[in-house]
Design a protein around this nucleic acid. Structure first.
Length: 272
DNA sequence: CGCCAGGCCTGCACGC
DNA sequence: TGCGTGCAGGCCTGGC
């Protein structure tokens, strides 16, 4: 589910409720996430006051002063702020009970998400240490994308989703960005010219920024921290639109598979 | 029943 | 030898 825009939407919704709040208690109902929630997680976090809620790629980072919570929403996760009187449901695995009387509650039916503890700089954690630049940051530019794709024969779609090339772009926004850049998803990445790298970088930034603006996309069960669904899915040009007509040229949208993931594109607007 | 689903790690065989 | 690459598999539940 959540790609960068959904994670950023969650971060923005969460931050005002968490910042400066003391975590009175931590309830772990199910440790069996993507990786087990550390046994001492509750002990590490209880009693700490949250300094900041940050994000790196699709990871949420909660600064507890004495260490950081590293949180990933996986495929089906969401993190919501609710009053602590709200009873926990079947898929509510972790609660941070706040002094304010609210809880930050992690819900994740498929349990592909993660809740980890980093005693120091979370950016040095093995999962984060080798991540590519942020797509909305200055480091991610045409020169970077061009350099990272030289000599690569894999489809550009695959590389756009590779966190060593750029972080945060998942299956939906990869298809959408390539559409906006006019690039065929199956193009061998190494054949992308610098000018087209420029277009793709621009398209990725614009697509993600617009999605954040819309509060992310809601497919199935995604909701932001305040429980509001995102609206960006109404703006899709290609994702999930196989057989529907291209909003720009009227050609039927086609589907492909790259690395077991479905890809959608307009055969007229997108060229190799 | 089988297949699909927004993520991401590991491991394998293969070809250069 | 060591990459890059495309797979399959794993972690899970739920909807069609």
């Amino acid at each position: 589910m959540p790609e960068l825009p959904e994670v950023e939407t969650t971060r923005r919704g969460l931050a005002p409720h968490l910042q400066g709040q003391r975590v009175e208690a931590v309830i772990v109902r199910n440790r069996a996430l993507r990786w087990p929630v550390p046994r001492d997680f509750a002990a590490k976090v209880s009693g700490r006051t949250v300094r900041a809620v940050e994000r790196r790629g699709k990871y949420l980072l909660i600064d507890c002063g004495t260490g950081w919570i590293i949180l990933h929403l996986g495929m089906s996760g969401s993190l919501q702020i609710v009053p602590k009187s709200v009873p926990a449901g079947k898929h509510d695995h972790v609660d941070l009970v706040l002094a304010s009387g609210m809880v930050a509650r992690l819900t994740d039916p498929r349990r592909f998400g993660a809740v980890l503890w980093a005693p120091d700089d979370p950016l040095r954690h093995p999962l984060l240490a080798r991540l590519a630049p942020e797509p909305l940051g200055a480091q991610f530019d045409a020169a970077w994308l061009h350099a990272r794709t030289r000599g690569r024969s894999a489809a550009i779609k695959t590389l756009v989703m590779d966190s060593h090339v750029v972080v945060g772009v998942g299956n939906i926004y990869a298809s959408e960005s390539l559409f906006h850049a006019g690039i065929h998803p199956g193009l061998a990445a190494g054949r992308l010219s610098l000018v087209r790298c420029e277009k793709l970088v621009f398209a990725i930034r614009e697509t993600l920024a617009a999605a954040i603006e819309a509060g992310g996309s809601s497919l199935r069960n995604y909701v932001g921290a305040e429980g509001r669904p995102g609206e960006f899915q109404h703006t899709y040009f290609v994702y999930g639109r196989q057989g529907d007509l291209c909003r720009l040229c009227g050609t039927a949208i086609k589907a492909l598979r790259h690395g077991q993931r479905s890809t959608f594109f307009c055969p007229t607007c997108q060229r190799r």
